[in-house]
Every structure is written in structure tokens, then in C-alpha cells.
């Protein structure tokens, strides 16, 4: 049985290799949510295939960076998409990526961006989402959140298994500095549970298990646009919000360098950028605000971005997680 399956698999692999000779294939490694049919992947694929002049964009989905690190220089990836600044240092240090040649002046990020390898394609802020029909006075600052009565119920994600969970811990560390441990201790009784990933936490929130959930300032846009539900809002904090950006990069060992460069250019083009808001539910990285979907412009929008570059994030990470873990284990 095993042999038959193995044989079938090998035939399949050989098959796809044969197809490669006719149409150039651009292999894009992407996180699962990006490549799935409910993510931005399929629309981006067909948009790019329209402009590339006879190419085939193929996604490989899963844990992008661990997989690339496992494969090393033998990877068949041409592009990696969906990396963020909390992992880009490890990605950069691997030497697997090549500089892009894209003019980044089109970027519309809320802060200046200098990076010749990793190119932002969308971004958002972490925020606590609440139901505005049930919570009349949401906290106006991180401090107020920490000081809220203990009967408020929060659900967050674990920084050891989730990007947004890690962002929360770095956010708190940036706001409270040396006092972060104390702040987490005060927050802990309000946190009913800590989930492995975003989906579980958000599912619990929409099921009414919690009053607030750690998510993104762009989350309410989904409910407004897809469900015509105005009841979800992001609580804005005076101290600012943690800026999370997702990036694309070209692999140094790509066998389709021209196509990869073309894709990197495409990332900042209006076609790509217009797909982002309502497919990845994030702010587009290179689209002026007046061209965003209406619901996005209406969202309450943080005044201050808290941004840690990859070196700062990497330096703070272990300490910040340990502090959080100690406080939450008491």
C-alpha cells in the first residue's frame, strides 16, 4: 500500500515538474489564511497571472518561515509572503532572502519605512475588540484596561504560539517598561483564558464567552462589510497601539528572478493593494486613505503607533514573554 502511495506521489511530483517547462511557475510560500479560498490569495493569484504575461502563480501554504528554514537553500520558493517584524530578523539572518528593487515611495504606512529586503503589503494595529451594545465605557488607555474591575472578561492569545499574542506582550512591554510585570499581574484576573491562536479566541468572543478579545483595529470592518453588523468596535488606547506589518520578500535562490521581481513590484500596485482590505481585513500598505473601502475609513483609528523594529523586538522578546508568563502563573 505504502509503495503504491509513494509511487503515486512521485508520479504527481514528476507531473508538476513537466508542466513547469511550458509555463514559468512562481512559487509563493504563504500562511494558510492567506492562501485559502477565503483569504486574499486566489484574487491576487488571478490578478498577477493577468499581468505577468503567461505565468502560473502557485501557493504553498503552512508555517512559512519554519518551512523555509527547514528547506534551506534547496527550497523551491521564489517568494515568501506573510512575514512580520517579530520574525524577520530570523529570516534575514538565514541569508535566504535577496534585496528587492521596488520603489518604496508609494508606501502609505503611518511611519517611515526603510528595508531593502522585506516589503510591507498590509498592516494593522493590535487592539481589544468589544461589543458596543454591551459595553458603554470601554477603557481609554492600556492603563485603564489594567485597572478595570476584575469582573470584566478578556480573552487573549498566547505569545508562545500566536503572532497577535506576542504582539500584545511587546505592546505591554513598550507601554509599561519596567512595570510590565506588575501590569500583567493586575490584568491576569480579568483574562478568562489564553488561547493557542487567534481563531479560538475570536470564536469565544463572538460566542459571548468574553467581553473583549485581543484582535486588530481592522476586525470591526469585517462585521460591518460582510455582516452589516455595527456592534463591534476597537477600544482605542492613549498610549498608542502596536503596529503589526506583514511583508513579502524574494528568495535569493529563486529560479524565476524576473518573475519574482515582477511580483514584488505588483505587491505595491493598486490592483494588489485594493484586494487587501476586504480579503485580509487589514490596512493596505500602499493605498492612500481616501481610496480605502468606506467601512475602513470609518473605523476609529489610533493616533499613535508603537513600533518595534526587528532588532528591538528580538531583544525584548524573551524577557517580555518570561515576565508575562511569570505574572500570569501566579
Amino acid at each position: 500500500m505504502k509503495h503504491i502511495l509513494l509511487l503515486a506521489g512521485l508520479t504527481l511530483a514528476a507531473h508538476s515538474a513537466a508542466a513547469q517547462e511550458t509555463t514559468p511557475v512562481l512559487t509563493v510560500y504563504a500562511p494558510d489564511y492567506f492562501g485559502s479560498e477565503w483569504g486574499p490569495g486566489p484574487a491576487i493569484e488571478s490578478a498577477f497571472e493577468e499581468v505577468c504575461g503567461g505565468c502560473d502563480l502557485q501557493y504553498v501554504t503552512g508555517d512559512v518561515l519554519p518551512r523555509l528554514l527547514l528547506e534551506g537553500t534547496r527550497t523551491s520558493a521564489d517568494i515568501a509572503i506573510g512575514l512580520n517584524t517579530d520574525e524577520s530578523k530570523k529570516a534575514r539572518d538565514s541569508g535566504l532572502f535577496a534585496p528587492h528593487s521596488v520603489d518604496t515611495s508609494a508606501l502609505t504606512l503611518p511611519l517611515a519605512w526603510q528595508d531593502d529586503t522585506f516589503l510591507p503589503f498590509n498592516w494593522s494595529y493590535t487592539a481589544f475588540i468589544y461589543d458596543n451594545t454591551k459595553m458603554a465605557n470601554p477603557p481609554k488607555s492600556f492603563q485603564e484596561l489594567v485597572d478595570m474591575p476584575d469582573d470584566v472578561r478578556l480573552v487573549i492569545q498566547d505569545p508562545r504560539s500566536s503572532i497577535s499574542g506576542l504582539a500584545l506582550v511587546l505592546w505591554g512591554k513598550s507601554v509599561f517598561g519596567d512595570k510590565a510585570g506588575e501590569a500583567w499581574e493586575k490584568l491576569a484576573p480579568k483574562v478568562v483564558t489564553v488561547t493557542k491562536g487567534w481563531s479560538e479566541a475570536y470564536g469565544m468572543f463572538t460566542d459571548g464567552e468574553a467581553d473583549m478579545v485581543l484582535s486588530y483595529t481592522t476586525s470591526p470592518a469585517y462585521h460591518i462589510i460582510a455582516e452589516e453588523d455595527q456592534s463591534k468596535s476597537a477600544a482605542l488606547f492613549d498610549e498608542g497601539h502596536y503596529f503589526l506589518v506583514e511583508m513579502a520578500a524574494k528568495l535569493a535562490g529563486t529560479d524565476q528572478p524576473e518573475l519574482a521581481d515582477q511580483f514584488m513590484e505588483f505587491v505595491l500596485s493598486p490592483k494588489f493593494q485594493n484586494i487587501i482590505p476586504t480579503a485580509n481585513w487589514s490596512y493596505p500598505a500602499a493605498l492612500p486613505e481616501d481610496q480605502w473601502p468606506e467601512a475602513f475609513s470609518q473605523l476609529n483609528y489610533p493616533q499613535k503607533a508603537i513600533f518595534l523594529d526587528e532588532n528591538q523586538a528580538a531583544d525584548l522578546r524573551d524577557e517580555a514573554i518570561a515576565e508575562w508568563q511569570t505574572a500570569f502563573s501566579k
Binding site: 508562545r160 504560539s161 483574562v191 478568562v192 483564558t193 489564553v194 493557542k196 508568563q325 500570569f328 502563573s329
Partner: peptide, 18 residues
């Protein structure tokens, strides 16, 4: 993790994942 209520309820498998 989901029902344990916090990092007190950490299993080896989570550490492996991390």
C-alpha cells in the same frame, strides 16, 4: 490552553510548538 485559563496550564506539547 483554551480551557486552562492561562500559562499555568502549559503542556510540553506547547513548549514543542513554541
Amino acid at each position: 490552553l483554551a480551557l486552562g485559563g492561562g500559562p499555568k496550564a502549559t503542556t510540553v506539547e506547547l513548549a514543542i510548538y513554541q
